[in-house]
Simulated scan of single mutants.
Amino acid sequence: MRPHKVDSYLDLLEKTPEYASLFSSARQLHEAQSTFLKFIPEQLTQYCRLGRISDGKLTVLVENGAVASKLKQISPSLLLKLQQRGWEVTSFQILVQAHNSAKNPRPFKKQGHSNKKLKLSSTAKTCLAQLAATMPDSELKNTIQLFVNQHQNDSTDPNSSEQ
């Protein structure tokens, strides 16, 4: 279905009595979400979604504990700003919805990470090999040895003087 056909269909549905209240609620939630996002730090906006307001309690769904913590820190000023805008909110309930990040993974490039393979310097390889040699047999020792072995094949070493 083409987008304009979907829009036409939704416009028609909105006019039917059975769906009018649903579309009205969706519109109000969208407007509330837009307003709410104006009052929180920009770096948090993509990780927060509004829930419902019930008995003066605003539910905010967030993707991780760090975002929840930051929102808790700014909640007094945020609450004041929303009340000044006429919202009948007296408290927040912040719920971490970690499964949202699994459904909507953000590519590393968007988060400022690079796919570039990091290279271990020869000094780091030597130190890790020495560390592994002094350790008793364990899973950690095996992991360090495997890691060093995987990086032995790096032909270019930016920190070494060998060329």
Rank of each mutant, 00 (worst) to 15 (best):
V60T: 06
L61Y: 15
L61N: 09
L61H: 14
V62R: 02
E63M: 11
E63R: 14
N64M: 08
N64C: 08
G65Q: 03
G65T: 03
V67E: 06
A68K: 14
A68C: 04
S69K: 09
S69E: 13
L71G: 00
L71H: 03
L71W: 04
L71F: 08
K72Y: 04
Q73W: 09
Q73M: 14
Q73A: 10
I74F: 02
I74W: 01
S75C: 11
P76V: 08
P76M: 08
P76D: 09
S77A: 13
S77F: 11
L78I: 09
L78T: 08
L79T: 00
K81R: 12
K81Y: 00
L82D: 03
L82K: 02
L82W: 02
Q83W: 01
Q84S: 11
G86W: 04
W87T: 04
W87S: 01
W87V: 03
V89K: 01
V89D: 01
T90G: 08
S91Y: 04
Q93K: 03
I94D: 03
I94M: 04
L95T: 13
L95S: 13
L95C: 10
V96E: 02
Q97D: 14
Q97L: 09
A98W: 01
H99K: 14
H99D: 15
H99T: 13
N100H: 10
N100C: 02
N100K: 09
S101I: 06
A102M: 09
A102D: 12
K103N: 12
N104C: 01
N104S: 09
N104D: 12
P105T: 06
P105Q: 03
R106K: 10
R106I: 14
P107A: 13
P107N: 11
P107M: 06
F108A: 07
K109D: 10
K109S: 13
K110V: 10
K110S: 15
K110R: 15
G112D: 11
H113V: 00
H113I: 02
H113S: 05
S114M: 07
S114K: 12
N115E: 08
N115I: 01
K116D: 11
K116A: 13
K116G: 00
K116T: 13
K117Q: 11
L118N: 10
L118I: 14
K119D: 00
K119S: 10
K119Q: 13
L120G: 06
L120Y: 07
S121Y: 06
S121E: 07
S122I: 15
S122A: 14
T123K: 10
T123D: 08
A124S: 15
A124T: 15
K125W: 06
T126W: 02
